[in-house]
Write a protein that binds this DNA or RNA. Structure first.
Lengths: 120, 120
DNA sequence: TCCGATGCATCTATTATCAATATATCAGAC
DNA sequence: GTCTGATATATTGATAATAGATGCATCGGA
């Protein structure tokens, strides 16, 4: 995650699940995919990514399996589970709800004050 | 903050600044205002609110002043500072940027997969 | 051989809440 | 006067989620 703000905390699992729902991927590729989709805005550190993957596996949201690439390299590919799919939906819904609520607070000031947001 | 998700962490200062930009308020009223605006979705615990206010005061984003109400009751009223105003703008901008990036990741799955989000 | 890319892992420090708790005082009901 | 609820503030320890720092391994190309 971009070292910008505490605002961004907590979204790691949802992001990971979001890319895994399309197809199974190994850790490094997950990070790359998210990075690419967000135009390099969202980035993981290893210290965040791998513990998160392990935790999600422990929770049963994803399942990991070691594979060997053509080049003979090993990597662990993760796939989303039905439980993970449900969790993703829950988090998406929560996110949308939260986002709306937040906008209701910060957005209302915008519509009333006007000055600051004109410069935003 | 509603005890829902780690997704919601980190937005406390921005929310507080958002209400203070309209007019000075004491702690309890700030919490009430945010709660009301978000239709009871966003709520603070005292353990979060007051340390956050103190920290923001220490950072110079807000300034507090003890007042006495008509009923003779004391309370500490906080007002946003110019520095706080700038910080609010920064955080709003960061939030909007982050929000867009997040949607780019989770939203893209939605538009492609279709099934899950149809039920969202 | 060396370097960069790919790929994974782990640990500590930091940060931001959550939970739990406590104190104080006003206002209204009994 | 007493009790209860609302108002108002404060603090502390536990917990969770990163950020930073580091390390290991291996393939591919120069």
């Amino acid at each position: 995650m971009t070292a910008m703000d505490p605002l961004f905390k907590g979204s790691t699992p949802m992001l990971i699940l979001s890319v895994l729902v399309e197809k199974p991927m190994h850790g490094y590729a997950i990070a790359k995919e998210i990075e690419q989709r967000s135009a390099d805005f969202l980035r993981f550190r290893e210290g965040t990514l791998y513990p998160a993957l392990h935790e999600m596996e422990r929770k049963g949201w994803i399942a990991g399996r070691w594979e060997v690439t053509d080049g003979g390299r090993e990597r662990k590919v993760y796939a989303i589970t039905p439980l993970g799919l449900r969790e993703l939906e829950r988090q998406q819904h929560a996110w949308r709800r939260f986002s709306r609520a937040l906008e209701a607070v910060i957005g209302r000031k915008s519509s009333e004050g006007g000055l600051e947001t004109c410069t935003t």
